[in-house]
């Protein structure tokens, strides 16, 4: 199961690099995001998987697709990079991937704690609920977010307010030169 999801994610992530059609990029992003959601389910973080699907796939991605639709009236929607730029980017990406994986080989990862035997992804034998991820219930999340991370929670709320104001300001059509009193509320 892991390999299936991982292959899906890596393939669609790299497909984004190689395609120059913005609509295809958005579709591949959909696949990659769903793959990540699947991995969250696999790791027994059901709430996160659901949030990822609802907010990320259902919200952010749709927003991006709206953006694509509103701005891609251009011929062919392609905006192809110059060939050498594309090639340089791809080569650079592959080199980067290699370097990063090398870095991982030479790094000590923390020991895995799940007592159900190292390496056993908890969700593989799902239904248990007593495995390491079992703590990730909605109730536990609520307690942590409103307890230890209360401040971050509040700031995130204020942040969303500001973002809404900013985005609304930028996106609405104001004709401010005749600002005397004619603008909409």
């Amino acid at each position: 199961m892991f390999y299936l999801l991982a292959a899906l994610m890596v393939a669609s992530a790299w497909a984004i690099v190689f395609t120059s059609n913005i609509v295809r990029m958005a579709v591949y992003l959909l696949l990659a995001l769903s793959g990540a959601a699947g991995l969250y389910f696999l790791l027994d973080a059901e709430l996160l998987g659901a949030v990822q699907l609802i907010v990320y796939v259902g919200g952010t991605l749709i927003l991006i697709i709206f953006g694509v639709m509103l701005t891609s009236r251009e011929i062919g929607m392609a905006l192809k990079p110059k060939p050498w730029e594309g090639a340089a980017g791809v080569v650079l990406g592959i080199v980067l991937a290699g370097v990063l994986l090398l870095a991982q080989v030479y790094s000590q990862l923390p020991a895995e704690i799940s007592s159900q035997g190292a390496g056993a992804v908890p969700g593989a034998a799902s239904g248990g609920g007593a495995t390491s991820g079992g703590g990730a219930t909605v109730e536990a999340f609520g307690k942590v977010i409103l307890g230890r991370y209360l401040l971050v929670f509040e700031v995130a709320g204020v942040l969303l307010l500001v973002v809404m104001v900013g985005a609304a300001y930028l996106a609405r059509r104001t004709s401010w030169p005749r600002s005397a009193g004619g603008t909409q509320p």
Binding site: A6, V17, S20, L39, P81, G93, I94, L96, A97, A103
Partner: peptide, 21 residues
């Protein structure tokens, strides 16, 4: 897996000319 996706993301950022890309 996450490092591979990171590399793909960085390559995307570097190669795309479309802001949404």
């Amino acid at each position: 897996l996450s490092l591979l996706v990171l590399a793909a993301g960085v390559a995307t950022v570097l190669t795309k000319r479309n802001a949404i890309g």
